[in-house]
Nucleic acid binder design. Sequence first.
DNA 1: CCTCAAAAGCGAATTTATTCGCTAACTTGT
DNA 2: ACAAGTTAGCGAATAAATTCGCTTTTGAGG
Lengths: 129, 129
Amino acid sequence: MPRPPSSQLTEVELQILRILWNKGASTARQIHNYLTEDRNTNYSTTVKMLSVMLRKALVKRDETVHPHLYQPAATQARTQQKMLKDLIQKVYNGSAGSLMLQALSSQKASPEELAEIRQLLDKLEGDEK
Amino acid sequence: MPRPPSSQLTEVELQILRILWNKGASTARQIHNYLTEDRNTNYSTTVKMLSVMLRKALVKRDETVHPHLYQPAATQARTQQKMLKDLIQKVYNGSAGSLMLQALSSQKASPEELAEIRQLLDKLEGDEK
DNA sequence: CCTCAAAAGCGAATTTATTCGCTAACTTGT
DNA sequence: ACAAGTTAGCGAATAAATTCGCTTTTGAGG
């Protein structure tokens, strides 16, 4: 019996997507340059990863220009949502509330963000009635 | 150049840890039985995974009894914390607040949990002054 | 003590994820 | 249209993650 392919984004895939989300459409060379701030790999490797991601439909590519331009296939928000849901499912036994409590108590958030959270909370609790 | 070993928990490792957190100390056979509710693998595989996890110090083993009893090496809370931090770092660009906002708006939480969150929020904002 | 069944361990096979060297294709500036 | 330098693509190599068959060890019962 073989090992099943993972449905998760791999380390490099996520790193590349992050670059694309933050920097916008980029060439393989640009992506590679950002990437090597963290990893120490060859240009060929970056190109290969991009081709794999293209096959997996994780990125799109504009081939009408040279060098080609790569773009993320999904928005950052949608991907975050998916991964968040996954973490809740697998690590928090499906309890979103328990994740929120832990996030709030153990990770730093700015006063502005806290205010925003409160505002959202007001809205949510208002709807309940 | 080889592929670097991942510092993340793998799929099976997490599944096994979840069983141990939820069910408490268990034998390989018990773990295997729970595991096969999701996956369809051989008993040998489960034992092997446990030995790998033992080498990685992800689980502890009581060998004074037979069959041996396995226990998680880290608490669920600590592992959650680590993985949450990692997600925030890698997927939310380090912004815990942004994760909170998305969790709050896209994932269901019970009224009790919302109340708890509000309480925690009060405490946090109180400390700021 | 001996037999049987379950538990534990080992080594090897398979697949995925990642890596890069080498070749081919394309641009640009003579 | 040619030379030089990128850029794109391919195929093969390597380590990690997962799988299981087979052997060895252990414990319980007679």
